[in-house]
Amino acid sequence: MIEILLSFSQATGIYSFMNSPWGWPVAESIHFFGLCLLVGTVGLFDLRMMGFAKEISLAELHRLVPAGVAGYSLNVVTGIMFLSTAPDQYIYNPAVQSKFFFMLIAGINMMFFYATTAKQVKSGTAIVGVVFRAKAIAAISLACWCGVIICGRLITYYRPPYHWCLWC
């Protein structure tokens, strides 16, 4: 796995860029920019579903979500750059594992939202049960993205081989 990721990084020029004097901080800046876009769009949508700023139509606020998806795409690209350049520092890092776990929960939560709740919420016809479910989904989403940020900060404190990982 580590060899495959490193080969990919070296073959695509990512490794050279990331090991240039400003490669790593530039990628980190873009990564955090993407995260802020996500918090500013998906996070605000979650807060609105939880009952904040009720004057705003959820359907209208949802129009900002594509900007959050763009931010998430930036995170995926820069995340792959980090992971493939120093795979041993990420794969065995418990903070990264926890971050991926929160991302997985956020993804499942999002799919559940679009499959069961989004239509009623956006049309403004949600009944009490649906409203409660929407609030729970929003709270889980917001908690997961906060967890992603916290684990992202923790990565540097749990570098292997000094710390445990979930399966080694």
Binding site: C36, L37, V39, G40, G43, A67, I149, I150, R153, L154
Partner: peptide, 16 residues
């Protein structure tokens, strides 16, 4: 961590 979380909310709200 608090600095990063707070920054994400401030910048995110300003971006929106």
């Amino acid at each position: 961590t608090v600095h990063s979380l707070a920054m994400a909310f401030v910048v995110g709200i300003n971006f929106a």
